[in-house]
Simulated assay, not measured.
Amino acid sequence: MSNRKWWQIATIIWMVVIFLFTQLPYFTGSHTAMAIDKLFFIDKIDFLSSQAKLLLIDLLNFLIRKATHLTAFGILSFFLFKSLERFRFSYLFAWCITFFYAMTDEWHQSFVPNRTASFKDVLIDASGAFIVLLLTFLIKVKKRKKGRPRGQQLP
């Protein structure tokens, strides 16, 4: 099986994983907040007021959830890029497909009880894809330059 086929299989599996996590009620904001409270023992912090504890939980909840969006869709864009790498506009295609999948994922989420769809999340997903694809591009350029003899310019 070709290397590209493995990336295509990884892409499909990752899309299914995203779909399944979107569907689970355990990943709502309130469930995540409760998990954060238990994981970090925030209710045990004596020097914070109850309002400060809630604000801390909300902040951590926001950061963790948005970092998850950035990461999940960044990974998807990388898998897509590797699947499409031999094509001329592989970076653009990978980003566009990731953006479209993020929109359909939020639309799907709107049908899941206790979940809401947010275009802000789509933008965060697209940003994660952009960041990963930019890093991929920069790493490839650096590797290409490293492999050339000294003094030879890139075409």
Score class of each variant (00 low, 15 high):
104 T>K: 03
133 L>Y: 05
115 R>T: 07
17 V>E: 02
30 S>K: 13
141 V>R: 13
13 I>Q: 10
7 W>C: 09
49 S>V: 04
137 F>P: 00
77 S>K: 03
140 K>G: 02
49 S>F: 07
134 L>E: 08
107 W>P: 00
9 I>D: 10
74 G>H: 03
19 F>I: 03
94 A>L: 11
98 T>P: 02
53 K>A: 02
21 F>Q: 05
36 I>P: 01
2 S>Q: 03
99 F>C: 13
127 S>L: 15
54 L>V: 05
92 L>H: 05
53 K>S: 04
61 N>K: 05
135 L>F: 14
74 G>I: 03
140 K>E: 12
135 L>A: 14
119 F>Q: 10
139 I>C: 09
68 T>R: 01
14 W>H: 09
78 F>P: 00
13 I>W: 07
116 T>Q: 09
64 I>D: 10
90 S>V: 01
11 T>G: 02
118 S>N: 08
127 S>G: 14
114 N>V: 10
26 Y>M: 09
27 F>V: 04
21 F>S: 09
58 D>A: 15
110 S>V: 05
89 F>S: 09
98 T>D: 05
91 Y>G: 04
80 L>G: 06
2 S>Y: 01
86 R>S: 12
86 R>W: 04
139 I>W: 11
34 M>P: 00
105 D>A: 08
55 L>H: 14
77 S>T: 04
56 L>K: 11
126 A>M: 13
136 T>W: 00
43 D>W: 11
26 Y>T: 15
12 I>P: 01
44 K>V: 00
77 S>Q: 02
81 F>R: 07
67 A>K: 01
30 S>E: 15
25 P>N: 12
14 W>E: 01
113 P>W: 06
50 S>N: 14
85 E>H: 07
82 K>W: 05
78 F>W: 08
134 L>S: 12
57 I>D: 00
30 S>D: 15
40 F>R: 03
52 A>E: 15
63 L>E: 11
25 P>R: 07
9 I>F: 13
56 L>T: 15
92 L>W: 11
62 F>I: 07
133 L>G: 06
87 F>S: 13
99 F>L: 15
33 A>V: 08
50 S>F: 08
133 L>T: 03
84 L>N: 07
130 F>Q: 08
11 T>W: 01
79 F>G: 06
82 K>P: 02
5 K>T: 13
110 S>H: 11
52 A>F: 06
60 L>M: 15
15 M>H: 04
69 H>I: 12
97 I>W: 08
70 L>K: 01
90 S>L: 10
17 V>W: 03
44 K>E: 15
